[in-house]
């Protein structure tokens, strides 16, 4: 058993564990961390496959950028929200299991039954232009130049699309400070709202403040965290 095999078996098992962890975690944040774990392992495999550029990109772009983007969005959506694992669609699990296993089984058996591929190695190809990165650069800027330019157009379009989707049109003029202060004095809550986590066990943004009588105050939470599941946990923690 050579070094590559050792690395492969370790990282492969880790990658599979990471993937399985992703689909069985109830909380999305945990899933994201499992994915990141699996991707780092894949990056290691890329090294053994003589693809250092891909491995670096995998870590920087995927694990670094893409997964962090996922985490940002999770923060917006509610970091603590966890799925219920009760299936609502009738027969979905049964069908998914059947077709998933059928697909996977057929795919794997097909691969397993092929003759062993020859391992040509990339030493020659990497050596032509003085290294893996130089070789890839040569291919990208020569043979795949058009595709490369098209991906740039794709990225710009995607960026614009994301802006358009995230954009919210302002229909009313921005309120001035005078208007805001007047508005506030017309409500029962003249003083600022309590900060989240005041007098609570911890000061996370989604943990409600405790009022002097010990009850949690929904008013202390940002809009999207009010009346959601985790508040019950928090209040339970507090009251217990």
């Amino acid at each position: 058993m050579n070094g590559e095999s050792v690395v492969f078996w370790i990282t492969a098992i880790f990658a599979v564990v990471g993937a399985l962890g992703m689909i069985v975690s109830r909380k999305a944040v945990h899933s994201a961390l499992w994915v990141a774990f699996a991707m780092v392992n894949l990056a290691v495999l890329y090294f053994t496959l003589q693809a250092p550029f891909l491995a670096t990109t995998q870590i920087v772009v995927y694990t670094g950028a893409v997964m962090m983007l996922f985490l940002f969005v999770l923060m917006i959506v509610g970091v603590d929200s966890s799925d219920s694992l009760i299936e609502t669609l009738k027969g979905q699990r049964l069908l998914a299991t059947f077709f998933g296993l059928a697909f996977g089984g057929l795919l794997l058996s097909a691969i397993a039954s092929t003759v062993a591929l020859r391992n040509n190695g990339l030493d020659v190809a990497n050596g032509d232009y003085g290294g893996n990165i130089q070789g890839i650069a040569h291919l990208i800027f020569n043979r795949y130049l058009l595709a490369f330019e098209v991906t740039s157009a794709l990225l710009i379009t995607a960026a614009l699309g994301a802006m358009v989707l995230a954009h919210r049109e302002r229909w009313t003029p921005r309120k001035t400070q005078i208007e805001l202060s007047r508005e506030r004095t017309h409500t029962s809550q003249v003083t600022p709202l309590p900060n989240p986590g005041v007098l609570a066990r911890h000061n996370a943004v989604d943990t409600p403040a405790l009022l002097p009588d010990g009850s949690p105050s929904q008013a202390s939470l940002p809009q999207q965290f009010r009346e959601t599941a985790q508040n019950d946990d928090a209040s339970k923690e507090v009251t217990s």
Partner: peptide, 12 residues
């Protein structure tokens, strides 16, 4: 997924 499984089956 079912379609993909079917194609895999046919290929097999």
């Amino acid at each position: 997924l079912a379609g993909a499984a079917l194609i895999a089956f046919v290929l097999f």
